[in-house]
Structure formats: C-alpha cells, structure tokens
Simulated scan of single mutants.
Amino acid sequence: MPEPSRIARLRITLDDTEPTIWRTVEVPLAASLKLLHEVIQAAMPFQNYHLFEFQEGAVRYVIPDPEWHDGNTRSAKSTKLGALVDRGTTAFAYTYDFGDNWQHTITVEEVGPAHPAIAYPRFLDGARRAPPEDVGGTMGFEEFLEAVTKPRHRERKGMLEWYGGPFDPDGLDRETIEAGVSKLARRRAIGQAAFVKGRGRP
C-alpha cells in the first residue's frame, strides 16, 4: 500500500495590516513552492504580475535567474512544501512584489492525511480584501483606504477610477478566491493523471 498523501493547513498572514488580512488554505506536501505561490496569489487574490520569494532562515526560494547565482538561493519550482515541513519548519516568509514589498508570514497550523474525496489545494477561510496591485506598499494602501472609505475625501473619485470600481476593505470575495484555487486543483489533478498514465499505471 502506498503512503497516503499528506496535506498542510497553512495560515497566510499579510504582515503589517490592521485589522489583519489573512487566509487559510490546505496544500499537499507534494506541491512545489511555485504552486504554493500560485495558491497565495489566488487566495488573496493578487494578479501575479510581479516577482516573489519564500524565505526560511537564510535560504531563499525563487524562480532561478541563470545569470545570478547565490549559495543561499534554491529553486521554488523544484522544492516541495514537504521539504520544509518535514524538517520541522512551522513558519516561513513569503514576499510578493519587491517594489510594494508585500511580506507575508506562512504558518503551518496542522499536517495530516489528505481526504480522497477532496481536490487540493483548497481555500478554507479568510478575512478582509487584499490590497490592489501597485498601490504603493503598506503606506500607499493606507492612503488608498483613507480615500476610498471617506465619501467626502478629495481623492476618493480618482482612487476609485484608478482601482476600477468600489473597494470594500471588509469584503472577502470568496467566490473569486474559491474559483481561482479550484482551478489550480483541477490543473494539478490533470497533471497527476497524465503522470500516472505516462508510467503505464491503471
């Protein structure tokens, strides 16, 4: 009997936000950190416009640049989430967009067997809407919120036009998030099926 697949329940917290912006997801330990990046993008959601890195201690996990080598840098494509969890890591960092510098803390809340009837990764819960892309980091987001939440603010109209519509900081667009994460789960299932078929297994 093969060992059952394992999943990690992760809490993703966007640092330096008050009230806190957070998400909880379940991700297979066999998933790459590149896939975890895509899960975070879908769960916030962000638009995946910018570079990212994970950091565990002194080690960074990125999409490697062949022209730049660093002994403390590893590939996010070839590193599995399980490689961090199985050596006892309970929390690590994720940064998205080095300009706006969105720093997140990823906390491993629980590890257990995957349920055979559930497609992973999956979104569980969260709170508050993530910042818009290119809003200008934490300070820019605070200024944006100040403008869009005060009806008489002189920059409100311009900010809403820039954003492309109303912005409810307390709103969690669960439907969009679940659709994005479910799309990743379907893609993963298709990839697994093709891998099994390629190895000639029933």
Rank of each mutant, 00 (worst) to 15 (best):
residue 85 V to A: 07
residue 69 H to N: 06
residue 81 L to C: 09
residue 142 E to D: 13
residue 160 L to I: 14
residue 151 P to K: 05
residue 84 L to G: 02
residue 9 R to C: 11
residue 17 T to Y: 02
residue 30 A to D: 13
residue 161 E to Y: 11
residue 130 A to M: 11
residue 35 L to V: 12
residue 160 L to N: 06
residue 61 Y to S: 03
residue 16 D to W: 04
residue 62 V to K: 11
residue 11 R to E: 15
residue 135 V to W: 01
residue 40 I to P: 01
residue 33 L to K: 10
residue 31 A to T: 08
residue 191 G to P: 03
residue 177 I to H: 01
residue 22 W to F: 15
residue 27 V to R: 00
residue 103 Q to R: 10
residue 76 A to F: 06
residue 41 Q to F: 02
residue 159 M to G: 00
residue 102 W to R: 04
residue 23 R to V: 13
residue 32 S to P: 04
residue 112 G to A: 05
residue 162 W to P: 07
residue 144 F to T: 03
residue 122 R to P: 00
residue 116 P to T: 06
residue 14 L to T: 05
residue 184 L to T: 05
residue 20 T to N: 02
residue 21 I to S: 01
residue 127 A to N: 08
residue 130 A to T: 10
residue 4 P to M: 08
residue 43 A to Y: 02
residue 39 V to M: 01
residue 88 G to I: 09
residue 148 V to T: 03
residue 89 T to N: 03
residue 172 L to M: 14
residue 68 W to F: 12
residue 58 A to G: 04
residue 68 W to E: 13
residue 122 R to M: 10
residue 196 V to R: 12
residue 151 P to C: 02
residue 182 S to H: 12
residue 80 K to H: 09
residue 179 A to E: 14
residue 202 P to C: 10
residue 119 A to W: 02
residue 22 W to D: 12
residue 113 P to A: 11
residue 182 S to T: 14
residue 182 S to F: 09
residue 162 W to C: 14
residue 90 T to W: 02
residue 70 D to V: 03
residue 161 E to R: 15
residue 134 D to H: 05
residue 126 G to T: 11
residue 29 L to R: 10
residue 12 I to T: 06
residue 174 R to M: 04
